[in-house]
Amino acid sequence: GWPQIWPLEGGFHDSITFNDNAVAEAAMVLRDVANGAEGFGFVSPELEARAAEAVKKAIDVTLAAQVRKGDQLQGWPQQVEPMRLVPTSARNYEPRSVASGETTDILEFLMAEPNPSPEVKAAIRGGVAWLESVRVYDKSFEMTDDGRKLIDKPGAGPLWSRNYDLVTGRPIFGDKDQSIHDDVNGISVGRRNGYSWWLAAPQRALDLYATWSATHS
């Protein structure tokens, strides 16, 4: 796994970072190196082999970091502690959680594996099932006279909360004072306007899964 920043400087930056797709992007570069993709023809066979091994390790770490509830696989957190691989917090308004955006990025990365193992397949199916279970319809997160708010809007959606509580599984929203709320409309206007608390991007993973599942029994 890779930290948010190198060299290490302390704090949440040292955590293994799925946020901004950091781990998957690094692993995808290495996967291209290992496969001799266009632009990497200069790479030696030794370095290709090392890159392939690094990709395998990145996948192992990613699978180990997937959140579980009992025997049920769910999604992924934004960051995990590098030694225990358990969810950890980041910025003041980013509490420990299961994160739908990061789950989407990771699922897209795993579904690009050419020969996925049974463990990878199980992780993908668990992540997709979790995304399907937490989506909401008839809601829109949009600008109002009082900043961005989640409002009723028949026919809209699906939407996903950015963060879900690790215990209850319900949406949670952090504010700049490190307080945690269960309603995005209850946090400060600055935080509501400055962060994607509700998002539609996870639908990408569900659309991709429809194609992936047709070729992976």
Rank of each mutant, 00 (worst) to 15 (best):
L8D: 05
E9D: 03
G10W: 07
F12T: 03
D14V: 05
T17Q: 06
F18K: 09
N19Q: 08
A22D: 01
A22P: 00
A26D: 03
A27G: 07
L30V: 09
L30M: 14
L30C: 09
L30H: 06
A34C: 12
E38G: 14
F42I: 07
F42T: 10
E46M: 13
E48M: 14
A51S: 15
A52D: 14
T62P: 12
A64W: 06
Q66M: 07
V67H: 10
K69R: 14
Q72S: 07
L73R: 12
Q74F: 07
Q79L: 10
V80R: 00
R84C: 03
V86G: 00
T88K: 06
R91Q: 09
S97W: 03
G101I: 13
E102A: 11
E102T: 11
E102N: 12
D105K: 02
M111N: 08
E113L: 14
V120M: 10
K121P: 00
A122I: 04
G126S: 04
A129T: 04
W130R: 02
L131W: 02
E132P: 02
Y137M: 13
K139Q: 11
K139R: 15
S140V: 03
F141I: 03
D146F: 09
D146H: 11
K153N: 13
P154V: 05
A156N: 08
G157D: 05
W160H: 02
D165S: 09
G169I: 01
R170Q: 15
P171E: 12
P171T: 10
F173N: 07
S179F: 03
V184G: 06
V184D: 00
G186A: 06
I187S: 00
S188G: 13
R192C: 01
Y195R: 05
S196K: 14
S196F: 09
W197Y: 09
A201K: 11
D207S: 05
A214K: 14
